[in-house]
């Protein structure tokens, strides 16, 4: 038997011992030591967990700083939803403001992924740190617009879609949105 082969056989044995014995024993020991590591468990509900404000919990519909519904029923949340648990219907008030006629989230399907919030162009739909959503009846997990709509602005305080968008609504005429000039007079030939 050549030296090289002997060496390689020894190396193999060493690797075998290291992998099958040392490594396993070390693992066992490391796990065993966790007996003395303090647990991470939070004793909910006696002890309330500290929730990050970006936690993706119960979904709400918010209002803009003027107190109007932010949701313009654009349907982007619904289409972004991977479990298709948002359904809504657009309607329009007298002033041309788009609103949801109904806005329904089936929380028994919701996976709290937050895609709806990301898709929302008006910051209307927001996920909140409220995770206490259990119900005894599954039907009670279907929330309508009346249940979802809150009176505040939620996480984003300043967003006001109609102050930016060019569509005229009550309280904001053509030419009054951000970066807008007064409506043109088509009868005029002046530049």
């Amino acid at each position: 038997m050549s030296t090289a082969r002997k060496n390689s056989a020894l190396t193999t044995l060493a690797v075998l011992v290291r992998d099958t014995l040392t490594s396993q024993v070390v693992t066992l020991w490391k796990v065993f030591r966790h007996l003395w590591v303090p647990t991470d468990t939070v004793q909910y509900p006696e002890q309330q967990p500290a929730m990050a404000s970006r936690w993706r919990g119960r979904i709400v519909l918010t209002r803009d700083p003027d107190g109007e519904e932010r949701c313009v029923a654009c349907n982007l949340c619904a289409v972004a939803c991977p479990v298709d648990c948002i359904a809504l219907q657009k309607t329009e008030d007298e002033s041309g403001r788009w609103k949801p006629e109904f806005f329904r989230i089936n929380f028994s399907r919701c996976i709290m992924c937050g895609f709806c919030e990301e898709a929302c162009p008006t910051n209307a739909i927001q996920l909140t740190p409220d995770f206490e959503m259990a119900e005894y009846k599954r039907q009670d997990m279907v929330w309508e617009k009346e249940d979802l709509l809150i009176s505040g602005t939620g996480k984003y305080h300043d967003t006001n879609f109609y102050r930016v968008a060019g569509k005229a609504v009550a309280g904001k005429d053509k030419g009054e949105a951000r970066n807008e000039a007064q409506p043109v007079d088509v009868r005029s030939l002046l530049p």
Binding site: V31, L35, T39, T41, Q43
Partner: peptide, 8 residues
Amino acid sequence: LGFWQDRL
């Protein structure tokens, strides 16, 4: 198992 996984 809980203790070894830092749980209760």
